[in-house]
Design a protein around this nucleic acid. Sequence first.
DNA 1: CCATGATACTTGCTCAAGCAAGGAACTGTT
DNA 2: AACAGTTCCTTGCTTGAGCAAGTATCATGG
Lengths: 162, 162
Amino acid sequence: MPQVTEQRDEPLNADEERLVRTLGRVMIVLPKLLDHDLRERVAISLTEYSILMHLSEAPERRMRMNELAGASDLSLSGMTRAVARLESEGLVKRDRCEEDGRGWFATLTPAGLRRLEDAYPTHLWSTRRRIIDHFAGSDLAGLTEALDRIGCGGETDPLVAR
Amino acid sequence: MPQVTEQRDEPLNADEERLVRTLGRVMIVLPKLLDHDLRERVAISLTEYSILMHLSEAPERRMRMNELAGASDLSLSGMTRAVARLESEGLVKRDRCEEDGRGWFATLTPAGLRRLEDAYPTHLWSTRRRIIDHFAGSDLAGLTEALDRIGCGGETDPLVAR
DNA sequence: CCATGATACTTGCTCAAGCAAGGAACTGTT
DNA sequence: AACAGTTCCTTGCTTGAGCAAGTATCATGG
């Protein structure tokens, strides 16, 4: 460990600075790239794709609105509109929750599943091209572990976390 | 190299899948975290901070609109509005470009520089806490190199790149 | 059983960002 | 020198997302 007494309020060192700038760029550019690929080829946004994907993996292909918002890192109000859009296209339907009258399920429709299956190859191609290919030969697991800590595990309100 | 004949259109393997999901989460959450930290403590957005920072590093503390848009990964129209906001706060001023009558410089004002210096400690704290701390013991340079390839170097229109 | 508070969502408002179209200035060709 | 094409930037329009406030349902205490 070269640096022994690292002051918290001193500037970043060169390696740290480069990492922050690069990651800063990636976090701005990458979502646009993935979103663009999907929109261009299968006319669906990354947000919508993500919602359909999460639903397809959930038991009975349905999730409560707040679960879904958490899974897709969207505010609850954002999720309301997003699901409304998907519903208007018939890709999702909404059912009252039996056990809790306040709650709603968003349920993937057969049409929604078809749409997801339709978009999947594009997104697979896109993620390979935009992400995986650039990490050839890297330690994916180690990298993922580090990145995962940034993501905050994704429990409680992430903005207030810690 | 374990996998010899990797089919491009087969699903991602488990490590790849985890990386994509984690990076996907980071690219959504991290900008919100950094933006939130800045807004809360020094009432400035990440976009605005980034603009002021780039200007402060440029020769004569000024940049053409399209340079600035490229550096901050913002559309040119987005940059027009962003600079207009900053100008209305007196943090930036705009001058016609002498050599090219179509062009404009955005120039950092002394007030803009003070604002940046004011925000810097917060952003430093934020990036340490949100990013650097999570990579303790990692190979920062190697990681940066991989991430840099995702960012596409940042030359030509990134959405059409390749 | 009623009141108070918490939870699950929705709706109104605002705002930042992108696209497409427009205007002004530059460049190149004939 | 004039026109066509390109570049640089701005403006009109639309959209997706968040916050704050509202509504309906649940849970709890008296």
